[in-house]
């Protein structure tokens, strides 16, 4: 586990990545943030570094967020993963919970992102 956490933000929406990055950077300017706009790019970037937290959009072209998260979980078993989605149906929440992932509803807010960061910090403490 590295001393400064690395966060991987995966979302096909640049807006969404910008918002999550801004909320994290405001709270933790020293954290390393890596962005990916799709599943294959995320897998490629995660393969070469330790990742402590991943925020993964569900509804992306090509590989969906749950499939991606399952693959990333396999390679990064200690990482904290949050599924970020506008699809707030109960069935989606349940799938995220069953996969051991946090659920963050879009639009993300400063509060929801900070709560996710706190969960990560508690795991690292």
């Amino acid at each position: 586990m590295s001393s400064v956490p690395t966060v991987l933000i995966v979302d096909d929406s640049r807006l969404s990545r910008m918002m999550i990055r801004a909320f994290i950077t405001q709270a933790h300017p020293d954290w390393t943030i890596v962005e990916a706009s799709n599943g294959p790019e995320a897998l490629e970037k995660a393969a070469t570094q330790t990742v402590d937290l991943m925020t993964i959009d569900l509804n992306m072209p090509g590989m969906d967020g749950l499939t991606l998260a399952t693959q990333l979980q396999h390679n990064h078993p200690t990482a904290h993963i949050a599924l970020v989605t506008a699809n707030i149906q109960e069935s989606v929440r349940q799938r995220a919970a069953a996969a051991g992932m946090e659920f963050i509803a879009k639009p993300v807010s400063e509060d929801s992102v900070l709560a996710c960061l706190s969960a990560l910090e508690n795991r690292r403490a």
């Binding site: 807006l15 969404s16 879009k106």
Partner: peptide
């Protein structure tokens, strides 16, 4: 990108209501 994401968010709410 922003308009697409707005629609994504809006439809997320709409789908939850329809569901």
């Amino acid at each position: 990108d922003t308009i697409t994401e707005l629609l994504n968010i809006g439809m997320g709410r709409a789908a939850a209501a329809l569901s």
